[in-house]
């Protein structure tokens, strides 16, 4: 896919279902294995939830812009917000043995994605980028099916 797919939603949890559906359609189109699809959708949903909770301080109508790039091997998503800039040194995944609100979504993202980065070099907000190699996932899913 040469052209990225862009979607902008208001920063309210009621729109998270929309972003999940669009991503599912996109991954279906690229014949992504079902389990990988679920994992990628979870990461994007958690990243957008973090923007709503921490970037904008709760549900509101500020923009969250998601840009999806899919090539044969690579999945990359960029989540742009215009809220409070995050200090990436303060973002810590919650230990799974210590389940409390906050940090579990970041744990999912770190567990699933290959690369994660936060860029705050802008006047307002954060550009959050997550990437994953799809080919590796595809191969392991094919091997699983052979067993």
């Amino acid at each position: 896919m040469s052209q990225p797919i862009k979607l902008s939603i208001p920063s309210h949890p009621k729109y998270l279902g929309l972003i999940r559906k669009v991503l599912q359609e996109l991954l279906d189109y690229h014949k992504t294995p079902e389990e990988t699809e679920r994992h990628l959708i979870l990461c994007v949903d958690e990243a957008c939830s973090n923007v709503i909770k921490h970037g904008y301080g709760g549900p509101c109508e500020e923009p969250i812009e998601a840009t999806f790039h899919i090539d044969s091997d690579d999945f990359k998503v960029q989540i742009r917000d215009y809220g409070k800039q995050c200090d990436s040194s303060q973002i810590k995944p919650r230990c799974v043995n210590e389940i409390k609100p906050g940090g579990l979504g970041t744990h999912f993202i770190n567990e699933i994605m290959d690369d994660v980065s936060y860029c705050t070099e802008r006047v307002k907000g954060t550009l959050f980028t997550m990437a994953k190699k799809l080919k590796r996932e595809l191969t392991s899913a094919q091997e699983k099916n052979k067993e």
């Binding site: 999940r20 959708i41 979870l42 949903d45 958690e46 939830s49 389940i99 579990l104 979504g105 999912f108």
Partner: peptide, 12 residues
């Protein structure tokens, strides 16, 4: 069909 981290935290 879908649960996120806040759903997991609620069940915990």
């Amino acid at each position: 069909s879908y649960i996120d981290s806040s759903g997991i935290v609620t069940l915990v």
